[in-house]
């Protein structure tokens, strides 16, 4: 097992939806787990033999680490801003590797096709040039992406040119920053935590941190679920289900710059779980 994944924190349940009388059975990196809440409200994560798994509750989610946590659970600066509407948007199973889920989230090219009428529109589907750089602590940062979006969020009253930024701070965590409709100089933030059930199944956990312009958490959830369910059949029809990160595995185009950087970074981290072609040493520089 890749140490980078084994010793990292992963979301295993939406803590806000975890009820005392309804424990959740799930898997992490192929390991079966039960997540439960006791009568006092404390959350427990155990393996099949009842042995406790290292766990914590943070940002509205239950987190678990199968090995020894190499780093703390990532911190999210925007959660400290008082004028935010924050909600978990549900946890959705997808029959594809966790890496594919993250990559799809980073893909600007699909917005005008898969989410036509909302996050893009035909024929304005070309992806304008944007910047991709490394984050100071490693990871990928894409910025300066601009997309015309007819309906960018549940409270958008008209289409406008939305600025996008993406960050991939951990191997299976990505965040999206997009101009808020009500305050275009600030960003609405969406975090995606991909829980690898096994190498070809994942659960997408979403955290929404929006500028509070009167939007309700239920409306945020409904919009996000509508968008995600448009992605699901596209994702599940990708072949192979594992993320190709080896050389010569797939032919990327310029619009896929973020994806290329993500795959290359995973290869550098030594991620092989849920990928194919990693022995090739990753994409050419």
């Amino acid at each position: 097992m890749d140490p980078i994944l084994w010793n990292d924190w992963h979301v295993v349940a939406d803590a806000t939806a975890l009820q005392c009388d309804r424990p959740i059975t799930t898997r992490l990196l192929g390991v079966p787990l039960t997540v439960s809440r006791d009568a006092q409200g404390a959350v427990h994560v155990v393996g099949t033999d009842g042995s406790p798994i290292v766990s914590d509750v943070r940002h509205g989610f239950v987190w678990a680490c199968l090995g020894k946590p190499a780093r703390p659970i990532l911190s999210i600066a925007e959660l400290a801003e008082p004028d935010r509407c924050v909600t978990t948007a549900g946890s959705f199973g997808v029959h594809v590797s966790a890496g594919r889920v993250i990559e799809n989230f980073l893909d600007l090219g699909h917005l005008g096709h898969v989410h036509a009428g909302y996050l893009g529109q035909e024929p304005q589907t070309a992806v304008e040039p944007y910047e991709v750089a490394r984050l100071p602590d490693g990871g990928v940062h894409a910025s300066g992406c601009k997309v015309f979006q007819p309906v960018s969020s549940p409270t958008a009253q008209s289409g406008f040119v939305v600025e996008y930024q993406y960050k991939v701070e951990r191997a299976l965590t990505a965040s999206l920053y997009k101009s808020s409709f009500s305050q275009p100089d600030r960003f609405d933030v969406i975090y995606l935590f991909a829980q690898p059930l096994d190498e070809e199944h994942a659960i997408a956990h979403v955290l929404e941190i929006f500028i509070d312009d009167g939007v309700s958490p239920a409306a945020l959830r409904a919009f996000q679920q509508f968008i995600f369910l448009q992605d699901k059949p596209i994702l599940e029809n990708q072949i192979p289900k594992r993320l190709p990160i080896g050389q010569r595995m797939e032919m990327p185009v310029l619009a896929d710059k973020t994806s290329v950087a993500y795959r290359r970074w995973l290869a550098e981290l030594g991620v092989t779980y849920g990928t194919v072609g990693a022995h090739d040493g990753g994409l050419p520089a």
Binding site: T88, S91, A218, R221
Partner: peptide, 10 residues
């Protein structure tokens, strides 16, 4: 009328 069926169990 959109319901928060999941995860809200409305």
């Amino acid at each position: 009328r959109s319901l928060d069926y999941y995860p809200g169990r409305e």
